[in-house]
Amino acid sequence: MIYDPVKHAELLVDYCVYAKGGERILVAASTLALPLVAAVHDALLARGAMPIVRLEYPSQLDDFIRLAPKALLANLHPVQLAEVESLDGSIRVLTPTPPSNVAPDRSALYRRTLAPVARERAKRKWNLTLFPTAYSAQASGMTLQAYETFVANAMFLGDADPVARWGEVRAMQAQLIERLSRADEVRIEGRGTDLTLSVKGRVWANSDGKRNMPSGEVFTGPLEASANGVIRYDLATVYAGREVSGIELEFRDGTVVRARADVGDDVLQAALDTDEGARRLGELGIGTNFGIQRASKNILFDEKIGGTVHLALGNAYPETLGTNVSALHWDMICDLREGGRILLDGEVFQESGRFV
């Protein structure tokens, strides 16, 4: 199918942030996403909401982090926080561009500075989505037309009623959560991976497209001191504008005690030094979207691949009852589709990427 920014905008406005008259909704994106931004702007106005549009040129954030004096990177301007406090919701649009040459330690510093903004934004309606760009197509090994189709299909934009399809996703994931909620211990086994952690007493969230579009995952916050063992993340990710791949982590009583990456190890080490909470897990997520079967080097899509798990270092989501606090939240993906397993209290829950 052909990607249609108007259909995408309608799904974001009506379903993801369910905009109401009088609400202030931030629309943040780069100029690469202008067709989608314009469609979202018009859709919000048609529903009586007030769009607050924030546009950047594609490398603006990287340029700021790279060139700004450290005093600017380390100090949050009151207006930045006040604006988020004035909002009812936000829609942020990713527009992938080539990797940057920003120093990882400077990115970590600015991430710590913006942590209060991120916490305030999380208290309101929010959605993170993607507009297909030429670079994102190239990075995924597709033509732009093929990538646009990939994006549209992942969001069900070609369906007569995309909202109904996301309702089906919600119902399927509710069945998984019913079983997961009875588990105390989760064990993940795979190539280079044998990790156990506890989810006893924690809440599993049903990610049905409201916060991420596309979506398709269930997630929780593991007990902060429970992770023990090793894990290898098979799929490459892009973090702080840099590609990182071949990540291996060893946990002892919830804390990363050894870490390495085949590519981008300096980015990984800087991220781990972000703050005290950066070496603990904030999220365990299980991908359920079997309509996404190929990696595209974009976490918004890749963490939803059916048959994968992702474990995020850093900040936990409060609705899961996770308590880890950090300016970092980095999802890393472990592919279990070739012989991997998830066990719940010793019982196989998923094998070779399929729920048993």
Score class of each variant (00 low, 15 high):
R121L: 15
V6G: 00
A33T: 04
A261L: 10
R337C: 10
T31R: 06
S296H: 03
S86A: 15
D14Y: 11
E224Y: 04
K7E: 10
P222S: 02
L72F: 12
T193E: 01
A205M: 12
R66T: 09
S226T: 05
T129Y: 13
E85T: 10
G22L: 08
K123T: 12
I286R: 07
A46S: 15
P51M: 13
V6F: 02
V163C: 08
G254L: 12
A74C: 12
V79W: 11
C16N: 15
G353R: 07
G287R: 00
K200V: 02
R337Q: 11
E168N: 09
I286S: 03
S136Y: 03
V244F: 01
S198P: 05
V37N: 05
T320S: 09
E23I: 11
G277R: 04
I25R: 08
V93Y: 04
G264H: 01
P5G: 06
A118Q: 09
S215C: 07
T143D: 08
A29R: 04
H329G: 00
G340A: 07
Y57V: 13
E23F: 12
P69A: 11
G167Y: 10
P99C: 14
A225Q: 15
E56S: 13
E248W: 00
P35A: 12
R179T: 14
E250A: 03
K304H: 03
F156H: 15
R280G: 03
L11K: 11
S107T: 11
V203S: 05
